[in-house]
Amino acid sequence: MPWLMPSETARHDRVWMAFPAEGETLGDTDALREEGYATWTAVAHAASEFTPVTILVDPSELTRARRMLSSDVTILEAPVDEFWMRDAGPTFVVDPERPGALGAVDWVFNGWGAPAWARWHDAAQHARIIATEAGAELISSTLVNEGGGIHVDGEGTVLLTETVQLDPRRNPYLDKQRVEAEMLRTIGATKTVWLPRGLTRDYDDFGTNGHVDIVAAISSPGRILLHAQQDPGHPDFEVSAALRAHLTTQTDAAGRAFEIVELPAPSTLRDEEGFVDWSYVNHLVTNDGVIACGFGDDVADTRARDILSEAYPGRRVVTVDARPLFDRGGGVHCITQQQPSLGR
């Protein structure tokens, strides 16, 4: 059956999220925990302006979630440990030959390669819980993968990273050919574009080992938004230049060369942990809006909004301060997952 993952620019029936639960990711002080709750809530409220939002909430967090979330956000009680919905949740697909058919790919989730600090056993069940709630046909996969590790154009092209799907902590026995075969079976990818690596900080212990959704996004067929670090003092200056050079040699499923549009990084280079990987590429496109990451840099945030507005004409760009998200290992795209509309 020819399942196909639509472009993220297609219409959505719903955005799925998970509300934070106490643990390593949320933080070990009251201030850090409150910051995390507030930021996840802000993204949920921003997305709900454009698309219905359902958020999974652990029983231990129900009282807090009901207090913080508006009535526009639907709460679904479910066990939650990790709360990066893009990665642990399902990847929704449709069947072009069966209008109205919705599928949900259930990748194997092992906490980004089973690091010692990660908790993922509850999150690994989220795809099945959501598939049932959404009335989707479950598509089981033995591939260890995360939604942040793929990006598609809806016409058969998928972007992957060699250090993610071929990570020996994830898929020690797979090669590119087997990964590509699984991408074809599950999301209808007929052309795989492999990136050699991701951003520098993403290889820290709390990173994902190179997720594509912080580096590159296909805004429309044949057009890629690419993270561009413009300061030579940052190690990603060379990384982003090399990725641009690599992508200029690639074509999509239709044989088109890519037009590359740079999304310049904000001016901040470091935080207390080292070089930051702050990226405007990690945004959510949903119906008539775009939820963009902001980094407290007025010039860069405004420039990014302008570029995103041009890339997604007719949509209103809303910026949410994403620094608390990136402090915890991701961005707006990482904590959201879209469910495509059917028959539109």
Rank of each mutant, 00 (worst) to 15 (best):
G274P: 12
V317E: 07
A304W: 04
D327Q: 14
W278G: 00
V93L: 05
V164S: 02
S220E: 14
S219P: 04
F295M: 00
T302E: 15
E22R: 15
L69C: 02
V179P: 00
D81P: 12
D58M: 12
T91H: 03
S70P: 02
D122T: 08
A241G: 12
V15Y: 06
A127D: 05
D30Q: 14
A123S: 11
F50K: 05
V239L: 07
G89P: 04
G198R: 01
V108F: 09
R323H: 02
W278K: 00
E310G: 15
A124G: 04
S60W: 09
S60L: 13
N287L: 05
Y203Q: 12
G210P: 00
R170K: 12
K191P: 00
E24H: 14
N209G: 05
G147Y: 07
T51E: 07
D213T: 02
F92V: 01
A123R: 05
V43S: 02
D205L: 14
G314A: 07
A322D: 01
Y280M: 08
E24N: 13
I218F: 02
A114W: 08
Y37F: 15
R64G: 00
V152I: 06
R328T: 06
D13P: 02
T268S: 13
V158S: 05
P59C: 11
E262T: 13
Q337W: 01
R64F: 01
A101Y: 03
L184Y: 11
G27L: 10
L325P: 00
T25H: 11
E137L: 08
D298H: 13
A245C: 09
A88M: 11
V53M: 08
R303M: 13
D106G: 09
H227K: 11
T200V: 12
T9P: 09
D122H: 15
H211E: 04
F206L: 13
R303G: 10
L269H: 10
V152L: 01
D95A: 06
D277H: 08
M68V: 06
H227A: 15
L195I: 09
A216P: 04
T319D: 01
D175G: 15
L166M: 13
T91W: 00
L195N: 06
L69Q: 00
P266H: 09
T200M: 09
Q165G: 06
V80K: 02
D301Q: 10
N171F: 07
R66N: 04
V80I: 15
V261T: 14
R223Q: 07
L184M: 11
E155N: 10
H126W: 04
